[in-house]
Design a protein around this nucleic acid. Structure first.
Lengths: 165, 165
DNA sequence: TTAGCTGCAAAGCCTTTGCAATTTA
DNA sequence: TAAATTGCAAAGGCTTTGCAGCTAA
């Protein structure tokens, strides 16, 4: 789906999370384990609701509560494993921030699809701008809005939000 | 406050809004007029709550209801006069998108301050990236996170959120 | 007269949180 | 045993919406 190369990481996401929790005297419970595994089982962007759905489907009656999902997402963000990349339909959208290279997104206004891209020049330009303002850059978030190639082809039937449900 | 030059526009914000409303068979009411004037009376970023406050203070008992403020902000956004630039404290933050040049922001994580900057190179780079993906770019949103110069000076006393109220 | 508008209160929604029961080191 | 964790339900907080009354062309 994506053209971006993955990055070599020392330890698995699960191990990384365990280490983070350990530094705070916290535990890697079965619920947290299930969440980390589900989140890193594929590299798609997702929001809390979608994750709850996936967990419900894949774990049957051993599901994880919504509260725990929210709490764990926050923890994973603090652990540097996830980051919020956008807001869609009033929900925070997350993506992996571990074992994956830095990138930004083209967002199709029609289909809502996120297309990832990498642009090294961007970083250097931002570094320059930040320096000019005496600003210490720690990160950025860039969303480019428009229409993807497929959304521009009129013959392809568009699906409304309702139909997609 | 900002170093950016303003841009010549054909008509005033009020007139522009009136025209937009006309195309939809809608009216420029006293409430909408008050909102447009208040919004364009200064070029600071703001959220709905702050705008309600300003309207309440500056218009006394002739205030505008929160509903109307929200509804009008949405209309002004559709009219191309405002745009959402960020989310702070769970609120949508707006800025002028009319009579003002395109720019992006450095956002201080410590003080929450937004610093505007203009970077023409950015546009061309994004255009190139979009073209490579067959993407029709319509706009973008870029937020650079970090610490502003003043937040990095330890001698200046930091103000907590509570103290700022 | 009729379509548009406002303000109020209520509803919606995502997200957070208090708390009692449960788990685990 | 003590501290951490979970799930539920309720609360929070921003934003939207139904509706009755009002306004203006």
């Amino acid at each position: 789906m994506s053209e971006l190369k993955s990055v070599n990481v020392a330890v698995s996401p699960l191990e990384k999370f365990r280490e983070y929790l350990a530094t705070k005297g916290q535990r890697l419970t079965p619920e947290r384990k299930a969440i980390v595994e589900e989140v890193f089982s594929e590299h798609e962007h997702f929001d809390a609701e979608q994750l709850v759905q996936r967990l419900t489907q894949n774990r049957g009656n051993r599901r994880v509560s919504r509260s725990t999902v929210y709490r764990t997402l926050t923890a994973m963000e603090e652990a540097g494993m996830l980051r919020k990349v956008a807001r869609q339909d009033d929900r925070d959208v997350y993506e992996h921030d571990y074992g994956y290279p830095r990138h930004d997104h083209l967002i199709c206004r029609e289909t809502g699809k996120l297309i990832e891209f990498q642009c090294p020049e961007l970083e250097s330009i931002l570094a320059k701008v930040a320096a000019e303002h005496g600003f210490l850059m720690e990160g950025h978030r860039l969303e480019v809005y428009g229409r993807s190639a497929e959304a521009c082809r009129p013959r392809v039937r568009k699906h409304s939000k309702l139909e997609r449900i």
